[in-house]
C-alpha cells in the first residue's frame, strides 16, 4: 500500500486522506473537497517563513533605494548619449550631478572633463584634471583613455611652450609692439606653438592685419582641428572683414564640435542676421536662450533677431530684461537700442 508521510492512502476506496466516500470526481487522486483544499495549503516550514521574512526586509530596503539609483542611472546614460550627440552643456550638467552622487565615478569625471573642454571652460577642465590625477592612478577603459587623450592633446596648445615668454607675459602684454616682435621671432623658431600663433593672431586683429590673423588661425585649425581659440579669432576677423558666408561656414564647423556652444551659437546667429537669414537667426538665438536665459549676449542677439523678424514685443521684453541686468554692458545696450530703433544700421 502506497502511503505518504501525511497519511495519504492512494488505494483507498474513498478520500485518500479521510476515507470519506464522497470524494471529488475527475481527479486521478481521490480526495474530498476539504482534504484537497487542506493539502493544497501545505504548510511552509518555519525556517522557510523566517527566510522569506528576511528576504522581504532586504527586498523592501532594496526597493526603497531603487528610485534614486534608477534616476541616477537613467540620467547618466542620457548624459553619455548627449555627449555622443556633442551636446556638452546639457551633458556637463548631468555629469556634475552624477559626480555629486558618486564622487568616485571615473567615467563621469572623464566625460565631465570633455564637456568642460568643449564648453571652453579651461579653468574647470584643469581643476577636474587635478581631481582625476588625485583619485585615479590608471585608466583601464580604452574608450575613456581615448576620450581623455583627445582633451589632453588639445589642452597643451593653450599655453605658450616657451617658459621665458610665459614668465614675462604680464609685462609683455602691456607693450603690444614688443610682445608682437617676441611672438613673431619665437614662431619662426617654434611654428608648432599654437598658443603663440593665436596670441599673435589676436595682436594682428587689433592692428587690422586680417591677412596675418587669417593665415595664423587657419594653420592652427589645420594643425589642431579641436583647438577652439583659433576659431574664435578667425570668426572675429571674418566678421570685421564682412566675410559673412565664410563666417557662417566656420560657425557651423565650431558648432559641430559642440552643438550647444555659446560662442558658436552667438557667432552663427550674428552671421545669419548679417546675411538676412532672419528666420534661421531667430531659431539659433532661441536655441541659445533656452540654454543661457540669463546671459546678456544671448538676450541681445535674441532681441535683435526678434526685431528683424518683426516680433517687436518679444524684442522689447528681451531688451528690458537686459536693462535690468547688473552685468549688462552699457555700450552693448546702447548699440542694441540704436540697431533696434534703426539709428545705426546693423546690416551693410
Amino acid at each position: 500500500m502506497e502511503e505518504f508521510s501525511n497519511r495519504i492512502n492512494l488505494r483507498s476506496a474513498g478520500c485518500a486522506k479521510c476515507h470519506d466516500p464522497k470524494y471529488e470526481r475527475g481527479y486521478k487522486v481521490r480526495l474530498c473537497k476539504d482534504c484537497r483544499r487542506e493539502l493544497s495549503r501545505y504548510p511552509l516550514k518555519r525556517e522557510v517563513i523566517w527566510g522569506a521574512l528576511g528576504v522581504s526586509v532586504i527586498l523592501l530596503l532594496a526597493l526603497f533605494r531603487l528610485p534614486a539609483y534608477f534616476r541616477a542611472g537613467v540620467d547618466y546614460m542620457k548624459g553619455v548619449q548627449l555627449a555622443k550627440e556633442h551636446k556638452y552643456v546639457s551633458s556637463e550638467k548631468i555629469f556634475t550631478a552624477t559626480l555629486q552622487k558618486f564622487p568616485g565615478h571615473t567615467s563621469s569625471l572623464v566625460h565631465l572633463i570633455t564637456a568642460a573642454y568643449f564648453n571652453d571652460d579651461l579653468t574647470r577642465t584643469d581643476s577636474l584634471f587635478s581631481v582625476l590625477r588625485a583619485t585615479t592612478t590608471t585608466l583601464d577603459d580604452e574608450e575613456l583613455m581615448d576620450e581623455l587623450s583627445l582633451v589632453t592633446d588639445n589642452s597643451r596648445y593653450y599655453d605658450i611652450q616657451d617658459d621665458s615668454i610665459r614668465n614675462q607675459w604680464d609685462i609683455l602684454k602691456q607693450d603690444t609692439t614688443a610682445y608682437r616682435k617676441v611672438l613673431e621671432d619665437y614662431l619662426l623658431k617654434a611654428p608648432y606653438d599654437l598658443a603663440a600663433a593665436v596670441d599673435l593672431a589676436y595682436l594682428y586683429l587689433d592692428l587690422k592685419n586680417y591677412k596675418g590673423t587669417d593665415s595664423l588661425c587657419r594653420k592652427a585649425i589645420h594643425d589642431a582641428p579641436l583647438f577652439r581659440p583659433a576659431y574664435f579669432e578667425l570668426l572675429s576677423s571674418l566678421k570685421d572683414q564682412k566675410k559673412y558666408e565664410e563666417g557662417l561656414t566656420l560657425s557651423n564647423e565650431l558648432l559641430a564640435q559642440n552643438t550647444e556652444s555659446l560662442s558658436a551659437l552667438l557667432s552663427l546667429a550674428t552671421f545669419q542676421l548679417k546675411l538676412k537669414k532672419d528666420k534661421e537667426a531667430l531659431a539659433t538665438a532661441r536655441q541659445a536662450f533656452k540654454l543661457w536665459p540669463d546671459t546678456p549676449d544671448v538676450l541681445a542677439i535674441l532681441s535683435l533677431a526678434c526685431h528683424f523678424n518683426h516680433q517687436q514685443e518679444e524684442s522689447a521684453r528681451m531688451l528690458a530684461k537686459l536693462k535690468n541686468m547688473t552685468s549688462a554692458d552699457n555700450t552693448q545696450l546702447a548699440d542694441l537700442q540704436n540697431f533696434i530703433t534703426d539709428k545705426t544700421p546693423y546690416r551693410d
Binding site: 505518504f4 501525511n6 495519504i8 482534504c35 484537497r36 493539502l39 493544497s40 495549503r41 501545505y42
Partner: peptide, 10 residues
C-alpha cells in the same frame, strides 16, 4: 499548486 488547488503530498 496552492493557487490552482492542487493537493501537495510532500
Amino acid at each position: 499548486c496552492r493557487l490552482c488547488g492542487v493537493a501537495i503530498f510532500d
